[in-house]
Amino acid sequence: MTSNIEKSFIATLRMFDHRVGFLEHLYGKPAMATISLFSGGFYTGRPQIRDQSHLLGIRINEQSDRIKPLKLHFGHTPDGYILTVKNQGPYFNQVISNHWLDTVEAVKPDTDSPSKFVLLDRYGTAITRDNLQAEHTPVCLKLESHDYLGGIKIRSLPYVYLGKTEERSKITFILSVVERHVPDIKR
């Protein structure tokens, strides 16, 4: 898959009062969670302990002052942007995709159907590189499923995740453009 180079760019996603990043960076590695599985309202087995280090989340600024901003390549497609991690580390060049808990995670770039995100301004108008004039722009991210990206808390788990929310619970991020002219990324 090849991104449209003319409309792609690299930027950071931040918030005013929270840090955005992988759970391992926000809370320490490994970011473990005990998950109880339910189906149709019925308990379906023993709780499972899972490493959730690769999931994205948020944390209040004063609790995580050493975290670097989340740097992403916004690879343009006709349906939205494919977000590829550009922070150095274990998730470099992995794409952000939906997770089964309605959260978002880093996955290998050769995934069959990477998630696509639409950038929206405060009026709900789609933003592309063409109309992204300011160096720092408030944006919301909308998934192709028409859900917004927001902070979600899963009962009994210690983290605040980034994941699918309704419009009233969406997060407004600060998008800061780092590079407007980026080489095409082959997947």
Rank of each mutant, 00 (worst) to 15 (best):
S3L: 11
I5H: 09
E6D: 12
S8P: 01
F9L: 05
I10N: 07
M15A: 09
M15P: 06
R19A: 13
L23Y: 03
E24K: 10
H25S: 14
L26E: 07
Y27I: 08
K29H: 14
M32Q: 11
M32D: 10
A33D: 04
S36P: 02
S39P: 02
G40T: 03
G41N: 07
G41A: 01
F42Y: 13
R46G: 11
I49P: 01
R50N: 10
S53M: 03
L55G: 01
G57V: 06
R59F: 02
N61D: 15
S64F: 06
D65V: 11
R66Q: 15
I67A: 02
L70A: 07
K71T: 13
H73Y: 12
F74R: 01
H76N: 12
H76T: 03
T77F: 00
Y81E: 05
I82Q: 08
T84E: 06
G89Y: 02
G89I: 05
F92P: 05
V95F: 05
N98C: 08
W100C: 04
L101E: 13
E105C: 13
A106V: 08
K108R: 15
P109Y: 08
D110H: 13
D110S: 14
D110A: 09
T111C: 15
T111R: 13
S115R: 10
F117R: 02
D121R: 08
T125E: 14
I127A: 03
T128L: 00
D130V: 11
N131V: 00
L132E: 08
L132Q: 06
A134F: 09
T137V: 12
C140V: 09
L141G: 00
E144R: 10
E144H: 11
S145A: 10
S145E: 12
H146A: 15
H146M: 11
H146K: 14
D147N: 14
Y148K: 02
Y148T: 03
L149P: 03
S156T: 13
L157Q: 14
P158C: 07
L162I: 00
L162H: 06
G163C: 04
G163M: 06
G163F: 00
E166S: 10
K170F: 06
F173D: 05
S176A: 08
V177P: 00
P183G: 11
P183H: 12
I185A: 04
